[in-house]
Deep mutational scan, measured.
Amino acid sequence: EWSVQQVSHWLMSLNLEQYVSEFSAQNITGEQLLQLDGNKLKALGMTASQDRAVVKKKLKEMK
């Protein structure tokens, strides 16, 4: 059960800090993070497919 802050730290740990402000603005918590798919990541401004791939891979490892 991650807070928005913990999601931000997680993104930073993946060197994806450029997305922290948008994820925070949308109040993405750990629970919501686990529901994100490629389209939702795109909607959050994650347009680079490599970045989405990293996030999806890491989320899969956490589930």
Rank of each mutant, 00 (worst) to 15 (best):
A53V: 08
V7R: 00
L16W: 02
M12I: 14
T29W: 02
E22H: 09
M46L: 08
V20G: 05
G38Y: 04
E1W: 09
E61I: 05
S24W: 07
V20E: 08
E1G: 14
S13M: 09
Y19L: 05
N15S: 10
K57P: 02
Q50G: 12
L36C: 09
V55M: 11
K58Q: 12
K40E: 09
A48C: 15
K63D: 12
I28Q: 04
A43F: 01
S24Q: 15
M62D: 05
T29E: 08
L44M: 09
Q18K: 15
Q6R: 06
Q35M: 09
L33A: 05
K63G: 10
I28S: 03
L14A: 05
V4G: 03
M46I: 10
L44H: 06
S3H: 01
V7W: 00
R52K: 04
E1M: 13
Q6M: 06
L34V: 10
A48F: 09
A48Y: 06
L33H: 03
A48I: 06
E1L: 10
G45N: 02
N39V: 12
V4R: 08
K56Q: 13
Q50P: 09
S49Y: 10
L36S: 07
Q32N: 08
F23W: 07
E31K: 12
K42W: 04
K40Q: 12
L14Q: 07
T47L: 10
K57L: 08
T47E: 13
R52C: 05
M12P: 01
E31V: 08
L44Q: 04
S3I: 03
A53L: 11
K63T: 11
A48G: 11
T47S: 12
W10L: 07
L36Y: 08
A43K: 12
S21K: 14
S24K: 15
Q18L: 07
A25G: 08
I28G: 04
N39S: 13
L16D: 00
N27Q: 14
A53Q: 12
Q35I: 07
G30C: 00
S8N: 12
S13Q: 14
Q6C: 02
R52Y: 05
E31G: 08
S13N: 07
A48E: 15
Y19S: 10
S21A: 14
H9D: 15
E31C: 07
I28V: 11
K60I: 09
K58P: 02
S13R: 10
G38A: 13
M46S: 05
K57E: 14
Q5L: 12
Q6H: 04
V54Q: 11
L34D: 06
N15D: 09
A43W: 04
Q35Y: 02
N27H: 11
H9Q: 15
W10G: 02
S21P: 15
L16S: 02
N39I: 09
E61Y: 06
K42S: 09
H9I: 12
K63E: 11
E22M: 11
W10Q: 06
S24F: 09
K56H: 13
R52N: 00
N15H: 12
L16E: 01
K57V: 07
Q5H: 11
K56M: 15
V55P: 02
Q6I: 00
S13E: 15
G38E: 15
S24E: 15
Q18I: 06
R52I: 12
D51L: 00
D51H: 09
L11K: 04
L41C: 04
K58R: 10
G45E: 03
M62I: 13
K58H: 13
T47G: 08
K60N: 12
V54E: 08
V7M: 01
L11T: 01
E61G: 07
E61W: 05
A25R: 15
D51E: 05
W2K: 08
S13G: 12
V20I: 13
N15V: 00
I28W: 00
M46T: 03
G45P: 00
K58Y: 09
A53W: 09
V55T: 05
S49V: 13
Q6G: 04
V7T: 01
A53G: 09
N39P: 15
L59F: 03
K40Y: 04
A48N: 15
S13T: 10
S8W: 04
S21N: 14
L33K: 06
F23G: 04
H9Y: 11
T29Y: 01
Q50M: 10
Q35K: 14
T29N: 15
Q5Y: 09
Q50A: 14
K63S: 11
K60W: 09
S49G: 12
Q26E: 08
N15M: 01
V4M: 10
G30K: 03
L34T: 07
